[in-house]
Design a protein around this nucleic acid. Structure first.
Length: 894
RNA sequence: GGGCGGUUAGCUCAGCUGGUUAGAGCGCCUGCCUUACAAGCAGGAGGUCCACAGUUCGAGUCUGUGACCGCCCACCA
């Protein structure tokens, strides 16, 4: 590996090479461990990739999600876990079907014309061509998933498992079929679940319509509705039994206008006396409440719409009209007959299809449902008992809230693309046979005149099973024993109910017997939404969508990953700001140049062992210090990652690498590196040890650049195929060195003080000046021992120690540990200096007053913990000294 | 109608079980092309922690109320 690295880091040249290498070498493939093997003894960490839709393109949300997952997986792997990350894609029923229908439409064909079988073949072709986009992008981004375990939700084995689940739930009485009000999308022509309906505030109208009372000419009852067209299906008018306005109409009937159908007035709590006139039309086939009321009162159900939202033959003169055309015509006709009592503006929530935004129609329809309560009860318990822990924990509230108000789940879809329901209808006796494999005779009458149910299952039905089906369920596999339950789920809150909740319900139900517990995962980390720099939600219509691949090509994957990680603090959305990414590109460049620096000296020295481990006992202050710092922040990074504080972890490494390792350590050791070959070799080997540790620490966050430099350090003969397979620094206690850290901090403070003085006195950069220092003997010795470091980094020539206070020397600095003054002829800018001192003084005096007030308070002295009181007393002593010295300095200026 | 979250420097955000002087990055100002890095180095300015009330010896942190912003859920005709 050549060491003549380019001056500026060019991620593009490097990343593609490593991304391909990781996949080619199958570095992250996890074989099922053989019993008794080493792997079988490793602790296991399993993560399931939330399967992207085959129709999807990678967006920033994915990239955040994948970055977090990859950091955790690389970290766990490096911590010695058998870390398995399983990727796959979801067949995405409606979305994919829409995509292919659109393609067909462009060719002038409809799916109906093509026929079911041919259409499904088209979808498979489409999926072959376009379905792998996101996973390919993931490969480019270096996700450390096991590509040999990639699945697709329509794979044969997964489909078999879906059938098995359906049959078992049916046998257990948890799946039923029936005619109920469902959300119907007239464009997709299918039922959809409650979750697939998005509610939007809609400024609509409330129409008040007079229904004539039968047999009492001139008498009307006024009802109000937002959907007048549904009146065609009215089979009653309800009034509240307690509403005195209608006592005289109890038991009477009304004439449904336009159709002239006589319908009863019923007494039902459905009618709220407070709303409108207190009377409500009842349309059991087109409203969930009315449906229930209909059952209570044995009302007929008249469905007046077809599957495309057109009025059907039950709509009399309106048959064939679209629902909104019919509305207009009905309103017109009512007006014409003088039956309109009024129209009011009325804002209400309208339901739209999540996929196509068509207004959803509540409609009576025969569908398959899951009886959800028993599953939900167990799923609630799992979280209550902390068998599953949410981070941030607040999401458990949202989860409970939804779970406790859950309705039965409509799982059938009138689509062609998906898992077909394993039920066969008998043309002779009408019995429905549910079976694991294609039935050829009715289970009741034995007739062979049977046809399979034409519906398919909700996409989320199959994805809800993934935590166990990907490991081979229903077979009793070793994979299930070893990898189930998965350890963690990282996902966005937008699919908390769609997917997370369903996995919990189904996992708990079907894996009840599993020895390691039935829950599908032990932890759920919910991440935030990625917004644009203006905090707007990214959306195609707004045109503010950032393509992760484009951003990545501009700044490098590592920089984008680091941006996302450093902003991923729990609970708040991420406003993705490219200026931040620019900063992390600079960070990558910094790392790169630190490596160049190391290699440059290596070449000069003509060889050193960069990978020989810790070369010797650290024998200089800076070595003891940086070793201590590395281990201390390693401990802290590990703790942050345990809590999914990606931001903390990233920031900790960042400030260590840049602010301590580069800014101080590398600067300090420069003379050693340019000294004798032997000194340089020793310094280099120690430097390399620290550098290599920092690279390992950083590698889950920035896998590419760390891999590149790590390999370069090993000169083409690394002990392992990848830094990703090395051990993660844990922070070893015995390398922590409080004394070295304290001593370095004194030297740093001294150096910064002098630099500060120089800047203030405007000393020419090239001019070195002597300094005087007043401090205790310990600090004097420390400064003496590290004289050359001080002189060089503070641009100083000559250090004189004095016992006298330097506070009144022109251009001096006072700290609690030392006083320092520049020996320099330049006139001090008295006005500026005096202003600065006054400002300092005011602050110090404020602090002193505050501290003394507290110390004068008996309550404080008795109630505050001793260390706080002691600390405050110490502060007062120091403040007094500083104030005195500042006053002296101020006096000296006059 | 229910539920949840946010408000800290010009911008984007940290701030752990209340404890001594509230931090970072970017931006801004000043000076440096110092042979790893100008995507850099050194120094600096900048905050009534949304408001009010309360608990406490002590509140950015806990409680309550309000304001503003945002999100989720919901079968009000």
């Amino acid at each position: 590996m050549p060491h003549d690295l380019p001056k500026t880091y060019d991620p593009g040249a490097i990343e593609v090479r490593w991304a391909e290498y990781w996949v080619r070498e199958k570095l992250f493939h996890v074989k099922t461990p053989e019993p008794g093997s080493d792997a079988a003894r490793q602790p296991v960490f399993t993560l399931l990739l939330p399967p992207p839709n085959v129709t999807g393109r990678l967006h920033m949300g994915h990239m955040l999600n994948q970055t977090e997952m990859d950091i955790i997986m690389r970290w766990r792997r490096m911590r010695g876990f058998l870390a398995l990350w399983v990727p796959g894609t979801d067949h995405a029923g409606i979305a994919t079907q829409m995509m292919v229908e659109r393609q067909l439409a462009a060719e002038g064909i409809s799916r109906q014309k093509l026929g079911r079988e041919a259409f499904i073949k088209r979808v498979w072709d489409w999926r072959e061509h376009y379905g792998g986009a996101i996973l390919a992008q993931m490969k480019r981004l270096g996700a450390s998933v096991d590509w040999d375990r990639e699945y697709f939700t329509m794979d044969e084995n997964l489909s078999r498992a879906v059938t098995e689940v359906f049959v078992r739930l049916h046998e257990q009485g948890l799946i039923y079929r029936g005619a109920y009000i469902v959300n119907w999308c007239p464009r997709c022509m299918t039922a959809i679940s409650d979750l697939e309906v998005v509610h939007e505030e809609y400024p609509g109208k409330l129409y008040q319509i007079r229904y004539p009372v039968a047999g009492q000419s001139g008498k009307f009852i006024t009802i109000a509705t937002t959907r007048p067209e549904t009146m065609l299906g009215d089979t009653a008018v309800a009034v509240n039994p307690k509403d005195p306005r209608y006592f005289d109409l109890h038991g009477k009937r009304v004439i449904l206008p336009l159709l002239d159908r006589e319908i009863p007035i019923i007494l039902d709590e459905l009618a709220d006396p407070e709303f409108g006139s207190g009377a409500v039309k009842v349309t059991p086939s087109h409203d969930a409440n009315d449906f229930q009321a209909g059952l209570r009162h044995n009302l007929p159900q008249i469905n007046v719409m077809d599957d495309q939202g057109r009025i059907n033959e039950n709509g009399g003169p309106y048959a064939g009209l679209d629902r909104y055309e019919a509305r207009e015509k009905i309103l017109h006709d009512l007006e014409h007959r003088g039956l309109m009592a009024g129209i009011k503006d009325h804002v209400y929530a309208i339901g739209k299809c999540d996929r196509c935004k068509t207004i959803v129609e509540p409609r009576l329809s025969t569908q398959w449902f899951i009886k959800i309560q028993p599953l939900a009860d167990r799923a609630i318990a799992a979280v209550e008992k902390q068998e599953i822990v949410f981070t941030p924990e607040n999401y458990s509230k949202t989860y409970f809230e939804w779970m406790r108000n859950i309705h039965d789940w409509c799982i059938s879809r009138q689509l062609w693309w998906g898992h077909r329901i394993p039920a066969w209808h008998c043309g002779k006796c009408g019995h429905i046979t549910v079976a694991r494999s294609a039935a050829n005779a009715c289970g009741k009458c034995g007739s062979d005149n049977i046809t399979q149910d034409s519906d398919v299952l909700d996409t989320w039905f199959s994805s809800g099973l993934l935590p166990f089906t990907v490991f081979g369920w229903p077979e009793k596999t070793r994979d299930l024993d070893i990898f189930y339950p998965t350890s963690l789920l990282i996902t966005g809150f937008d699919i908390l109910f769609f997917w997370v909740a369903r996995m919990i319900m189904l996992g708990c139900h079907f894996m009840a017997e599993h020895s390691e517990g039935s829950v599908p995962f032990r932890e759920v980390y919910i991440h935030a939404l990625v917004r644009d720099a203006e905090r707007q939600k990214m959306s195609k219509t707004k045109g503010n969508v950032l393509d992760p691949i484009e951003v990545t090509e501009k700044y490098g994957t590592d920089a984008v990953r680091f941006t996302l990680a450093s902003m991923a603090s729990p609970g708040t959305d991420i406003a993705f700001n490219e200026s931040r990414t620019e900063g992390y590109r600079a960070f990558a460049n910094k790392i790169w140049n630190a490596a160049r620096f190391m290699f440059m000296h290596l070449d000069r020295v003509g060889g050193a062992n960069l990978t020989g481990g810790l070369p010797q006992e650290a024998d200089t202050l800076e070595d003891r210090w940086i070793l201590s710092r590395l281990n201390r922040i390693a401990g802290s990074v590990n703790r942050s990652l345990v809590e999914y504080r990606f931001d903390e972890a990233a920031n900790t490494i960042y400030s260590f690498f840049w602010g301590e390792f580069c800014d101080w350590y590398l600067e300090i050791i420069k003379p050693r590196l340019s000294g004798s070959a032997e000194d340089a070799r020793c310094a280099l080997e120690f430097l390399a040890y620290i550098f290599e540790g920092a690279l390992r620490l950083l590698s889950p966050f920035m896998p590419f650049i760390t891999e590149e430099i790590w390999h370069a350090m090993h000169e083409g003969t690394p002990p392992l195929k990848s830094i990703a397979l090395s051990r993660y620094p844990q922070g070893e206690e015995h390398w922590l060195n409080d004394q070295a850290e304290e001593e370095m901090s004194v030297l740093q403070e001294l150096i910064v003080s002098v630099r500060n003085l120089r800047a203030e006195l405007k000393v020419e950069p090239r001019v070195k000046t002597p300094i005087r220092v007043q401090a205790d003997t310990r600090i004097q010795e420390l400064a003496q021992e590290n004289r050359s470091m001080l002189e060089r980094l503070a641009n100083v020539e000559g250090i004189e120690f004095t016992a006298q206070s330097l506070a009144h020397a022109p251009g001096s600095r006072t700290t609690t540990r030392f006083e320092v003054a520049l020996v320099y002829e330049r006139q001090v800018d008295k006005a500026a200096e005096s202003e600065r001192l006054k400002k300092d003084l005011a602050k110090l005096e404020g602090q002193l007053a505050n501290a003394e007030r507290q110390l004068g308070n008996d309550q404080f002295l008795t109630k505050a913990p001793p260390h706080v009181v002691e600390g405050l007393k110490k502060q007062v002593r120091e403040l007094k000294i500083l104030i005195e010295k500042n006053n002296m300095a101020l006096g000296a200026l006059k």
